[in-house]
Design a protein around this nucleic acid. Structure first.
Length: 494
RNA sequence: GGCGCCGUAGCCAAGUGGUAAGGCAGCGGAUUGCAAAUCCGUUAUUCCCCGGUUCGAAUCCGGGCGGCGCCUCCA
């Protein structure tokens, strides 16, 4: 079953056929770095990180580029308001963005080019478009002439006449047509500026993505991604200027992720009520919880964000944590350190061996879902089924009592290895949750062990009132006790 | 006004022509001293509404209704 992707350009699902067999070039629009990242900024990175993981696992050699737009009117305004420089602001916000990506396990980005480091390429493309008659200089600015490009509107499926009729585009006397957009903007005194054939200025908004994607991935590459809100005008402009410049098709497939809403409205910097900062969320929730929410439905669908939803997701993830604890008790090894197949072929070999019932089926269905336009919601469902199949097998075979017998638990461990393979494809459970670890070198662990010992004695004496008091008081402190045949375990909960 | 997305149980959600995955919440059972965790069972005769095509539709077509996004900076 080949991988199929929904292409905004054709509005259909198409089999993935790459420019160079076995290789994928993927470009995703990153942030304009003038304010801290909110949860909405993470949707694209998490989705495309997952897509990259899946493509790599499927045998592709993937190069993934996410740009940083570090020069723009908004940066100038914000830097002035803060009394700092555009450069300092951009660096600070970029560092915050990077920290959020790291926290969510978005590790697959190969290049993060900055607009300000590609001024030369931007000027080159702009000049090239002027030379070919697609752009014109006007009073220090340079505009793309939309009327010269017959295909303008093909990505967002609009026609330019209607566009102009209903347009609320700011009238600028320098533009020939209201739909024309700036490739280069003349700078005012005191603003960041670069020398150019048209005088000192800075790039327009869309040109940097054309310059950086074509430089790093070639003039024709495979996947271009971004939020649905970027389809028009950003991506429409990007595709038209790139193709007019190179004379080649730009990106083969355009993938757009749905937007996050809060209280029913799109989360957006221009609607401050809706903004939920990543930095705050990361203090309240496990990264896996945030990531699971973002992957819980198909990537084109909008997701309504709320703390209640996150709590639900977190409760759902407990089943995984409990299973991982079981694995650790059984094998003495952490699930988080478990090596798993890193390719589909390797996983297929493991799946062909001895496994608990249903495990191979769920794996097959998981991969099928991912093949079909990266259906992470369906894949996640299979992961939950896998957890159940593994617990069921361990229960039925009474594996907890046979943990000293490697041969007996081997099929189950193989099943766990499949779970590791698949959950890693979604970028989940890469690291143990921070909160379940007692303070390193602190007294918490030993003190809890002491209380468990005292409670065990009370239970032996059939003093259940005291035993339950210990358990309830610990629960009040967020520490949950679990009595199992082989002893009492404990867990710190949120 | 134009372009696009969406409407599946109390909530979230997969499924896009063959008789409704999964998660949360709830209920019943196994297990337990009681719990927790785990397992089993259960919760939509039905997929916004109305018509049509078909042996057969949540899935295709037509028409409504409702929600959202874009057309201006946005991931």
């Amino acid at each position: 079953m080949p991988i199929r992707v929904y292409n905004t350009l054709t509005q259909t699902k198409e089999p993935l056929q790459t420019v160079v067999p076995g290789k994928v070039g993927m470009y995703v629009c990153g942030p304009t770095v003038y304010s801290k990242s909110h949860i909405g900024h993470m949707v694209g990175p998490v989705i495309f990180d997952t897509i990259k993981r899946f493509l790599v696992h499927s045998g592709y050699d993937v190069t993934w580029v996410v740009n940083i737009t570090d020069v723009d009117d908004k940066l100038i305004v914000q830097a002035n308001a803060e009394g700092t420089t555009v450069k300092e602001l951009a660096e600070r916000v970029t560092a915050d963005y990077q920290a959020c990506l790291d926290a969510l396990g978005v590790t697959g980005i190969d290049h993060m080019p900055r607009a300000t480091e590609h001024i030369e390429e931007i000027i080159g493309i702009t000049q090239g478009l002027i030379d070919k008659g697609y752009a014109y200089p006007a009073g220090g600015d340079v505009y793309f002439d939309v009327s010269k490009a017959a295909e303008y509107g093909k990505l967002s499926h609009r026609n330019p006449e209607e566009l102009q009729a209903g347009a609320r585009i700011e009238p600028t006397e320098k533009k020939k047509h209201p739909g024309d957009f700036a490739l280069w903007k003349a700078s005012k005194p005191g603003e960041p500026a670069w020398e150019s054939p048209w005088g000192p200025g800075r790039p327009g908004w869309h040109i940097e993505c054309s310059a950086m994607s074509m430089k790093l991935l070639g003039e024709h590459f495979d996947i271009h991604g971004g939020g649905l809100d970027l389809v028009f005008p950003h991506h429409e402009n990007e595709v038209v200027q790139s193709e007019c410049y190179s004379g080649k098709p730009f990106a083969s497939y355009w993938l757009h992720n749905g937007l996050l809403t809060n209280k029913g409205r799109k989360i957006s910097k221009s609607d401050p009520d809706t903004v939920v900062l990543m930095a705050d969320l990361l203090h309240q929730y496990e990264p896996d919880t945030l990531r699971t929410l973002l992957l819980s439905s198909h990537y084109r669908r909008p997701i309504d964000f709320s703390p209640g939803r996150l709590d639900e997701v977190e409760r759902g993830l407990r089943a995984f944590r409990s299973l991982f604890d079981r694995f650790e008790r059984m094998t003495g090894r952490s699930f988080y350190d478990l090596d798993a197949p890193t390719s589909r072929a390797e996983g297929d070999r493991l799946a062909a061996g001895e496994l608990p019932p249903e495990v191979a089926d769920h794996r097959a269905r998981f991969l099928e879902a991912m093949d079909d336009d990266f259906n992470t919601g369906g894949a996640l469902g299979e992961l939950f089924e896998l957890v159940r199949a593994l617990n069921r097998f361990a229960d039925a075979e009474r594996l907890d009592a046979r943990k000293g017998d490697p041969a007996a638990i081997a099929p189950w461990v193989a099943g766990m290895t499949i779970l590791r393979e698949l959950s890693r494809l979604l970028g989940l459970f890469l690291r143990p949750p921070a909160r379940s670890e007692p303070d390193a070198g602190g007294l918490t662990g030993p003190l809890i062990e002491l209380l468990i010992e005292l409670r065990a004695q009370a239970r032996k004496d059939r003093n259940f009132a005291l035993a339950d008091q210990i358990r309830d008081r610990l629960a009040g402190l967020g520490i949950r006790l679990e009595d199992r045949p082989d002893g009492t375990g404990w867990k710190i909960e949120g």
